[in-house]
Amino acid sequence: MTENISEFTCLVRDMREAQKLYFHTRDKSDLEKAKALKKKVDEELENTFGWIKNRQPAIQGRLL
């Protein structure tokens, strides 16, 4: 489990660095790399937490 978290953390770090590089350079190849890494992050999130989006939200009571 810890190993998966470390891999995911590195993947997110790489994605953010690629995004920052693209916004600095506006180079098309940097954009493609950032998009590819974002897709990987999204896939990991879907694999890990995909069941959450299909869950019915809990009904909340009034605060006041």
Rank of each mutant, 00 (worst) to 15 (best):
S6P: 04
D42Y: 07
D42A: 15
R26A: 02
T9V: 05
K40R: 08
L11A: 13
K35N: 09
E32D: 14
R26G: 01
E7P: 00
L63Y: 15
L11Q: 09
N4M: 13
L37S: 05
K33C: 11
Y22R: 01
I52V: 05
M1H: 11
A58K: 06
E43K: 05
R55S: 02
E7I: 02
E17H: 06
D42Q: 14
R62W: 00
R62T: 07
I59W: 01
L37D: 01
T9Q: 07
L63W: 15
R13N: 12
L64V: 08
E46M: 10
L37W: 02
E43W: 03
S6I: 10
N54A: 09
E17K: 10
G61H: 13
D14C: 14
G61Q: 15
D14H: 07
E44L: 13
G50H: 02
I59E: 04
G50K: 00
V12C: 06
N4D: 14
T25C: 06
N54M: 08
L11I: 11
K33L: 13
D30M: 03
I59Q: 03
D30A: 12
F49Y: 04
N47R: 07
V12E: 05
T9L: 05
E32V: 08
F23D: 15
L64T: 13
E17A: 14
V12A: 04
N47P: 00
L63S: 13
A18Q: 08
E7T: 06
D30L: 05
E7A: 07
P57L: 06
E44G: 08
R55F: 01
K33I: 09
E44T: 13
Q60K: 13
D14Y: 06
V41A: 03
F8Q: 03
D30I: 03
D27C: 10
E17V: 14
E43D: 08
S6R: 10
M1I: 04
K33G: 10
H24S: 14
A34S: 13
Q19I: 10
K53N: 09
G50M: 01
Y22N: 03
K28H: 11
K33P: 04
F8W: 02
K33Q: 13
K28D: 14
L45R: 04
T2H: 04
L37N: 03
M1D: 13
K33F: 10
E3K: 12
T25M: 06
T48R: 12
D14T: 12
K20L: 03
L31H: 10
M1S: 09
K20M: 04
K20D: 15
N4G: 12
C10Q: 08
R13V: 11
L64A: 12
A34F: 05
N54R: 07
K38R: 15
R26H: 03
Y22K: 02
A36T: 07
T48Q: 07
T2C: 02
I52Y: 00
K53W: 06
C10D: 09
R62C: 12
I59D: 04
Q19R: 10
D30R: 02
R55W: 00
C10G: 12
D42F: 09
F49V: 00
S6Q: 14
